[in-house]
Design a protein around this nucleic acid. Structure first.
Lengths: 336, 336
DNA sequence: TTGTAAGCGTTATCAC
DNA sequence: GTGATAACGCTTACAA
C-alpha cells in the first residue's frame, strides 16, 4: 500500500491536519515542525493522493486538450507547448484526438472536460451552437484558433497573415494570385478569406485573386488545388496551410512547373515541415508555441471582467525559397 | 453544484447503493429498477465523479504516455493511436513530453504514473538502471520501442528493418552503403546496427558498410551525415529515421548530388513526412499505429505468466523514389 | 434483491 | 499554531 498522509503525520508525531498544512500551506505551520514533516514525507516517499485531494478541493490538477488531429504538425506543436506550460503550472494534460469529427469533439469535451480544471478546445469546424452547448455544461473552456460569442479564445491573426502574404506576392510582381482554401466551415479559413478581400484596392493595383475553393487541409488537398491553380493561370498560390502547400509543390513539380521560377507558393503556419522540403516554403509563421502557452495561461487565470478574454497573436511572413517574381511569360502549359 | 449519485437515488426512490449498482453493476439489480435509475440519471444529467470512484476503487481511468518529443512525427503517430485505443477501452490519456531529457522522463513517470492505471514509456535513451528504478516504484509500466530486462515491451523489429533495407540496396547493385546513426545511447539505434552487421557474408557478396557515427535524430543530423557519406564514397545511405533522411536529401541536393541517380537514400519509420518530399522516401515502414494500440492492449491486460510480455512488430520496406541502382561511375565530386 | 454503513485520503472548519 | 472531526462522492461488505 502507498504511504499516506496519516503515515507521515504519525511518523512525524503530528496530527494529519498539521502534516497536510506543512505540505500544502507551509506558512500556517511553525518552521521547525514544517521542516520535520517535509523531511519525513520525503524519507517515506510520500506522494499525495490526487483523487482524495480532488474530492475535497474540486480541483483535479488536470487540463484537457481536444484537437482534431494529433498527427497534424500544427496541433502537435500546440500540444507540446500546452503540455510544457501546464506542467510548469502544476497541471497534467489529458489529450484527446477528435479524429476531425466535430461530433466526437463535443462528446470528448463533455466527458473529459467534466472532471478537468479546464478545457482547451481546438475546434475549427464545430458549429457555434454546438460550441455554446458544450461550453454551457462544463467548467472553464477556452477556444484555440477559433472565436465564438461569449467564449474566451486565443487565435492567430489569420486575416493579417493573408494580407502579408498577398502584399509580398504583389510586391514581387504577381498579379494573379490563387487561394487554395481549407475545409468548408473552417473558422480560420473564413478569416483568411477576409484577409484576401481586404486589399484589392488602389494600394495593390491590378491584383486579381482567384478562389480555388475548399480542400482537405492535408497534402492531398494541395495536390488537387495545384491543377486548379494552373488552370486558372495564377502565377502564385497561397495555401490554407503548409501541408497543402507541400501538396502543391509536389503536384506542380510533377506537372513540370518549376517553383518558384514559374509559380510561387506560400504556405501558412510555418509548421516544422516547412523547412524540410525543397524549395523551402515561404509561409506565414504562426507562433504555435506561444499560442499554446497563452491558452494555458488564460485558462488557468482568466482576467477579471465581464467579457471573456479574446487574444489575437501576431503572425509574420517568413520568406524562403518558394516565392520569386513571376516569369514575364505566362507559366508554361502543362505537358499533358 | 453537480448532480450526485445521492440525488439520482433520491429522485428514483432507491438507496445510493442500488443507484450505484444500477449504473456500475447492472446485473445485480432488478431490471425495472435498473432502468428507472438509469433513466433518472440520464434526465438529471448525472456524471459520476471520477475522483470519488478512484478513491475507493484505486483506478483512475487514466493512462500516462511519456514521449521524448511530441513534435516528432514518430511519437505523434504513436500518441494518436494510443489515445484512440485507450479511449475505446474507457481510459483517458495523460500525455507528457520529456523534451528529449532522460532525467525529466524519469521524473514524469514517477509523478504522473503514480496515480495512473499504467504508464506507456517511450524512452530510447534512459539507462537500464534508471529504467529499473522508475519501474520499481510504480504501477504497471510498459516500454514502447525499447526493451529492458524484466519489463514488458512492444518494439518494432529494428534489426530486420535494417536487414531489409540493406538487402534492397544490395540487390540494386550498391556495394558501399553508409549508415547515418541516431543519438548515442539509443536502444533502437543499437538494434539497427546489429542488423547492419547481420548480412555481410556470402549472401551479399562484396558488401561494404560504412558507419557514419551518431547524430541527432532530426533534420540537422541528416544534413551533417550527408557530407560524411559523400566523403566516404558511399553510393547509398541508410538513415536512422525519416527526419534525418530528409536532411540527407536536402544536403545532397545542395551539394549538387542527385537522388537517386547519384546516391540512394533510405529512411526509417515511414513517418507521415516520408511521402511529402521529392523524391518520395524509400523507407522502412514501422507500424506506428499498431505499436500504440498493442502497447495499450498489453498494458491494460497483461498476459498471465512469469515473464513480462515482449512483443516485436514486423516492419516492411517501402520502396519509393529515393532509391535506384548506383551510377556505374562513382558519384560526382562535390562542386565545392 | 435491496438498504445501511463504513470507509477511501485529503482538506476545511472550528475549537483550543 | 495545532488538533479533532466532518465532509467530499462513491463503492462495497454485510445485514436484512
Amino acid at each position: 500500500m502507498a504511504v499516506t498522509l496519516r503515515d507521515v503525520a504519525r511518523a512525524a508525531g503530528v496530527s494529519p491536519a498539521t502534516a497536510s498544512r506543512a505540505l500544502s500551506a507551509p506558512d500556517l505551520v511553525a518552521p521547525e515542525r514544517r521542516e520535520l514533516v517535509r523531511r519525513v514525507a520525503r524519507e517515506l516517499g510520500y506522494r499525495p493522493n490526487r483523487a482524495a485531494r480532488e474530492l475535497i478541493t474540486g480541483r483535479s490538477g488536470h487540463l484537457c486538450l481536444v484537437v482534431p488531429d494529433l498527427e497534424n504538425p500544427f496541433f502537435s506543436a500546440v500540444a507540446k507547448a500546452v503540455q510544457a506550460r501546464a506542467r510548469a503550472a502544476g497541471h497534467a494534460v489529458v489529450v484527446a484526438d477528435a479524429e476531425e469529427d466535430p461530433l466526437l469533439e463535443a462528446e470528448l469535451v463533455s466527458h473529459l472536460g467534466a472532471q478537468a480544471d479546464g478545457v482547451l478546445l481546438c475546434s475549427p469546424r464545430m458549429s457555434p451552437d454546438d460550441l455554446a452547448d458544450v461550453a454551457a455544461d462544463g467548467g472553464p473552456l477556452l477556444l484555440v484558433n477559433r472565436e465564438a460569442a461569449g467564449l474566451p479564445s486565443v487565435v492567430i491573426d489569420n486575416r493579417d497573415g493573408v494580407r502579408q502574404a498577398v502584399r509580398h506576392l504583389h510586391a514581387l510582381g504577381h498579379r494573379r494570385i490563387a487561394y487554395a482554401g481549407g475545409p468548408p466551415g473552417s473558422w480560420s479559413d473564413a478569416r483568411r478569406r477576409e484577409g484576401l478581400a481586404d486589399d484589392p484596392g488602389p494600394r495593390l493595383p491590378g491584383l486579381d485573386v482567384v478562389d480555388l475553393g475548399a480542400h482537405a487541409p492535408v497534402f492531398a488537398g494541395g495536390v488537387a488545388a495545384a491543377d486548379l491553380a494552373l488552370a486558372a493561370g495564377a502565377t502564385a498560390v497561397l495555401a490554407h496551410n503548409d501541408l497543402m502547400a507541400l501538396g502543391l509543390l509536389d503536384r506542380l513539380r510533377t506537372r513540370g512547373v518549376r517553383v518558384p521560377d514559374d509559380v510561387s507558393v506560400v504556405g501558412f503556419d510555418d509548421a516544422p515541415v516547412a523547412t524540410l522540403v525543397t524549395p523551402a516554403l515561404t509561409t506565414v509563421a504562426a507562433p504555435l508555441a506561444r499560442l499554446g502557452r497563452t491558452a494555458v495561461d488564460l485558462l488557468l487565470d482568466p482576467p477579471r471582467g465581464d467579457e471573456p478574454a479574446r487574444v489575437a497573436l501576431p503572425v509574420e511572413l517568413v520568406v524562403r525559397a518558394s516565392t520569386a517574381p513571376p516569369p514575364t511569360a505566362p507559366p508554361p502549359a502543362a505537358p499533358a
